[in-house]
Nucleic acid binder design. Sequence first.
RNA 1: GCCCCGAUAGUCCAAUAGGUAGAGACGAUGGAUUCAAAAUCCAUAAAGUGUGGGUUCGAAUCCCACUCGGGGUACCA
Length: 831
Amino acid sequence: MTAVGGDQVAGDTYDARALQEKWQARWAKENPFAASEDPADDRPRRYVLDMFPYPSGDLHMGHAEAFAMGDVVARYRFQLGENVLHPIGWDSFGLPAENAAIKRDSHPAEWTYANIETQAESFKRYGIAFDWSRRLHTSDPEYYRWNQWLFLRFYERGLAYRKDGLVNWCPNDQTVLANEQVVQGRCERCGTEVVRRSLNQWYFRITEYADRLLDDMERLEGKWPERVLLMQRNWIGRSRGADVRFHIEGRDEPVTVFTTRPDTLFGATFFVVAADAALADELCAPEHRAEFEAYRAGVAKLTDIERQSTERTKTGVFLGRHAINPVNGERIPVWAADYVLADYGHGAIMAVPAHDQRDLDFAKAFDLPVRVVVETGEEDPDITGVATAGEGRLVNSGPLDGLTKTEAIPRIIEILAERGTGDAAVNYRLRDWLLSRQRFWGTPIPIVHCPDCGEVPVPDDQLPVRLPENLRGADLAPKGVSPLAAAADWVNTACPRCGGAALRDTDTMDTFVDSSWYYLRYCSPHTDTAPFDVEQVRRWGPIDQYVGGVEHAILHLLYSRFFTKVLYDMGLVDFTEPFTRLLNQGQVINQGKAMSKSLGNGVDLGKEIDEYGVDAVRLTVVFAGPPEEDIDWADVSPAASLRFLNRAYRVMAQAGAASEPGTDPAAGDLALRKATHQTLDKVTAAVEAQRFNVAIARVMELVTAARRAIDSGPGAADPAVREAAEVIAVTLSLVAPYVAEEGWERLGHTGSVAVGNWRTPDPALLVQESVTCVVQVASKVRDKLQVPPDISAEELERLALASEKVQGFIGERTVRKVVVREPKLVNIVVA
RNA sequence: GCCCCGAUAGUCCAAUAGGUAGAGACGAUGGAUUCAAAAUCCAUAAAGUGUGGGUUCGAAUCCCACUCGGGGUACCA
């Protein structure tokens, strides 16, 4: 190791591994990143949270990126001297642990907790500024006990309930899934095609909160990524329209349908009931029974993918019944079909083939009449097969004739309401959250089924209902019912109400329940009398900055928002949105493809760290581009990051060797001082705006400026060089904590650089005495002038016109107009 | 199909409220250093902003259409 630039400083290339060990030990001892609970501590409080990891193995590149981003935010807040809460824990219930246990003939806890330890060690090496004392694992009984407690509170409020219904069933994982966990007709985790099964399951009544979940998003505007808000809005899918009641011949009760186009009611030519709805079964006339049953059986066999294919031609059967259109008394045939969904609206529709493509496709398939009721000027849908949806006047619609859609909708609703056959109505695409799972490694549902008392909640003082510990390996294999059912001594229990023999509910909760409120538990992780200490949550909540991947855009984020609103209604939290700001970091990919084991193109985080060191890896992921964009590992260079860090380190080491801390920078080189303060100003702005890659570019400039000052300027001993080096250490600490600490120490400081060292730029050093003004003639740059920044428009115009170059370009032409944007631009418009 | 987002040197990316297209980096080329190489340092070249229109004194930035890429959603009545 030879010193460069003439300064003999020992070790001017840093040894990443040695620094990592040295500073990890120091941080472990000094605990600089613990949040203060002292009520007298009046520093601003800041809650920064990364979505907690699932312990699937060791940390990988994706974690490296996500946590590096979150740490920039947290460390910036630490540097500002704020009281920062930046905790870590594990989302440690879930299927992979169970599958591993089956394979290894062990208990899921073994695999889970071993992985957690591995990840914890890796996080420590990775240098994330966590408060380790708040660590939690959702699979601990001390944690999941409160899932049960919360479930019971939801149950008391009618927000947790059981119902029969068609549910998504994954044949591979042998469990039901929530709607949110079915992606394109496939199981979100294993990719198996999901089928529908009719089962009795537990649900959370999230639909009751649909309006609030939707409307409260207004307050997240500008603070959450626009696309996440959009995805949630679409997912909730509020549509406004009307409920219309149709009398069915031979049935006492009318059947209600929901429509967003009540204005087209006069165009309804048939009526369709979801084939798998109970209503279809009930309405079916005896002479059509056989045909209907055959049809229904065929539909039940289809997977969601087959069923949802838009290519598929419409199918259905006539039920041998007729409905009466409430506005014109027309008799229209009632059909059963699978294009109508049993669980949306009322599971039945009025079909208006002229103005709805699906209804038209059906009408064409079964030769049903098509009646145009909106004159849009488009071709006859009965001929073209294309339903018309444009604007136009209503026709063939009695009292609505001549009206536009916007006029007709309120009018028809009024008419329906007067006759008592309809009302304005709202429907949502969002369904209730199916929360039971037929798997082992999750939170047992704290309900006992008693032959006499029915469904009985387990009393709070008997919580937690612990998972049995004697099941392992093959005992956990999926059988279509929860493995818990096999634990006879666990299942058989006394009814909490009557004391008689009863059975425990054997399903476990969706693990998204765990993650819906974990952020609250961090505020008081050791509380054992409640899920969280209400006072502590009042102090810390809500989260100022949440960081995580877009894959949770609807799942976790929607559930967590729902939980927060319920807890607000219960008076346990005083805010209604859990995550004030959200940052979605991108993914790390390789050569254009997602990294995967099967492709064998994975980048191993451990190897990268061994080769380049933690700081270089962190710098690489943060510098690669805007945080929300994907990083292709083929496009980045950790080697280059390491080179830069060495350069920065050398500047700090040389400045440290040449001067003492506390040197007054005022006497230093003015140009470098200005560069330092400009950098500080720009880095602060970039970090605040979450443009971390730009912030790093600014630090790079300062390193270059300091390098030059040492080599060919005032030299390493100049106070301005020390000032620059210190600012380099402080700003670099957000991404390269080890180099920053070591550099800070080399600069002669004894404490950690990481906390409370951010500086405010000196405004006097930010003002520039002259700026470059561009003078354009006909929008082309023809001259540049050095002018004072506070120059007046008149003066600048005079100077610009006085320029010889400019005059040369104006020539004989007349000046029509002079646009002056002092102090940076003048544009002379010529004829 | 519908709805969003994006496209800037060979590559990744910058460009306050339209106002000099280049901050930073990778790579390339040349040079210094070296017996040579690595490392280090210095220098240079490189696009007119996906395409076509429009608004404007002036457009990467605003508007319209299209192309390509990415994402969401999929019979939601």
